[in-house]
Design a binder for these strands. Sequence first.
DNA 1: CGAGCCGTTGATAGTCATCAAAATGAGTGG
DNA 2: CCACTCATTTTGATGACTATCAACGGCTCG
Lengths: 243, 243
Amino acid sequence: MPKNVNPLAVMVRKLETHTPLGHDDRAALLALPHTLRTYENQTYLVRRGGDRSECVVLLAGFAFRWKQAAEGLRQIVSVYVPGDLINLDRLFLNIVEEHIEALTITDVAMIPREAMLELARSHPAAGYALITSSMIEGLISREWMLNIGRRDARTRVAHLLCEFSVRLSSGPAVEHGYDLPMTQEQLGDILGLTTVHVNRMVKSLEAEGLLIRKGRYITFPDWNTLCRLADFSPRYLHPNDGT
Amino acid sequence: MPKNVNPLAVMVRKLETHTPLGHDDRAALLALPHTLRTYENQTYLVRRGGDRSECVVLLAGFAFRWKQAAEGLRQIVSVYVPGDLINLDRLFLNIVEEHIEALTITDVAMIPREAMLELARSHPAAGYALITSSMIEGLISREWMLNIGRRDARTRVAHLLCEFSVRLSSGPAVEHGYDLPMTQEQLGDILGLTTVHVNRMVKSLEAEGLLIRKGRYITFPDWNTLCRLADFSPRYLHPNDGT
DNA sequence: CGAGCCGTTGATAGTCATCAAAATGAGTGG
DNA sequence: CCACTCATTTTGATGACTATCAACGGCTCG
């Protein structure tokens, strides 16, 4: 990250993809007091019963939120990408059954809770943007529910890979290829599948020429066919386009 | 509903279960302009591309939100009970891939969008309460993801029945029995199972004496055992208790 | 009384989990 | 540079859970 660039700019840029902001609002968001931290891979960003006094913004790297069933099986319920506010809900709720963990090395900004609430009062449009981002998280959750509940394993895997492709590319012109930030075991924990079966589905997509892998880097030679097979449409990721 | 009672009282009561409100805030919520409507069973309360100018409050009856996969399979992603704001997210998002449908005959109040936004500006605590209720909806969604993704069919069914039992009983002292407002097919659409398999799981629970049915009315002779078997803990439904 | 929805049951098939173990690859230290 | 370790990916064999298909019974309602 270059010097002299406000670290929160990545968050503001993200908010502006779905909500228009005025100069004042943008300035107020960038002026939020914050402290920067770096977390290692596989450490908790937010833990059960942890501190509720700060809001965490993901600046670089990836993180995920998970829950656990009685038998120890894990379900990943959200994945966060740079610019995301990863625990906005903890401004309002005492959440004890969910954990947020770094998927890679991450840079985050911690913003005091009071500053967030005050911002929402003084700059309604900025508060509106924050709430909107949380509502989009809900949209994604519900699409995941559909994915897990009503699509077969291959379609599920393909759908998730498509979603990441869109979420990780900032602009529409970017090629559909990226570095998958997680293991197949973690994919399984997102999709409600076992590691073994995820592997077989990935290989099956590869065998059909819909996916090319070089290590963790994947590309999609035939994006349109893949989307059709995956039952994927990016509409739920960009709900306010054309409105 | 008796005369001289403000229909929105059911909503305010619900909000107060998770967020304390002052007299002013309560009064402002009750003073929201609204029109009352009744919807028949199986009609759309909110439909794709529909009107975004009003917020719908469920006063009596039940409703659900659903999405559809390519093959026509349906996934129910939320169920709403009296007092719920069922489309708060549409104040912020243009949602086209989700529908909200009445499960029973329902009474609703329609509140103009502008009045809602103005209320949030003039009475921050009331706005806070509204957002909190939306965050709780997110908590439930994520528990459903865990349920669908990582629990077997019997546990899934039992968990859902436990959840409804808690959500439908207003007070802690209420017995754990209620009138199930949906068919087994709809249960399947919530749980990602087929009708046939839901039926078998329900019967299996019944055979073990964990469930008694009289038509749609169900009771739980051994609530504690059922909760254990269902991997159910009501914590996610009452996130702010003890905080 | 017929129509239609809902719940129930049986037989069969298929998807995905489970168990076990071998490859691959990155990182470490000698 | 070469063992060596460890996480991750891959493969095979087997079995369990759930879907699918088909049909029947019960109930409500016009």
